[in-house]
Amino acid sequence: MTAESTSATAAGPGALPASRDAPLISLRQITKIYGSGDAEVRALRGIDLDILGGEFVAIMGPSGSGKSTAMNILGFLDKPSGGTYSFGGAEVDHLSRDQLALLRRNFLGFVFQGYNLLARTSALDNVELPLIYQGMARTQRRRLALEALAKVGLKGREDHDPSQLSGGQQQRVAIARAIVTNPDVILADEPTGNLDTARSHEIMDLLTELNRKDGITILMVTHEPDMAEYADRLIHFLDGRIASDASAEKAAPDAL
């Protein structure tokens, strides 16, 4: 309930209104084929997936199972070879590169395993980056970036370079950068892959909080079952297909 109501207000500029019933993300028979002829690789072989606004989804699967390809398509970084992708009710699978860039800018936030912060650039400047591309005025940008950094617990470290921050802190900067635009969805690609257990749990707590409090939909790829437990839905990929989709309301963790 809180998730849905806040997701409406938290939507970025020009947010697509996601109705209560319609899924925020809807994939229908999505395929992705790399190469051609004998070198053809069918990374995705028909994915059907609906994700509602406010869900926290963990995606698991072995290497080559297609989960990264699916994440790239979900994150508007790649286009499917076939099938339809609806985001907020609008078909987005045939948009141009720049239109996809606008979708990323306004509706998505990315968190990567390797943080992917700009080197020799302060935490504040890193967080401001998406707002620069939105064309926001400097003072407003600064204010929002400071807020986002405070939210991830990095108040006072705004002027630090990534090299002056620990891995956990760098990932917090990356999360701040992801949330500074008030996105609908955060795509997290093994966000705790480079962190020790304590740091990993802190990051997961932070993501959970963003999901619960701000209603941000989170799609997370992970190898670690411990981390997947934070999600309330677990999808397994295998050989370019969805092998299992356990929408169990924390059933698995409870059972353990």
Binding site: A101, L102, R104, R105, N116, L129, Y133, T181
Partner: peptide
């Protein structure tokens, strides 16, 4: 290259 990737990921257009 990586920096460019980051910029593109956070929503920079080709023109930008």
């Amino acid at each position: 290259t990586r920096e460019i990737g980051i910029r593109l990921a956070v929503g920079a257009t080709e023109g930008q």
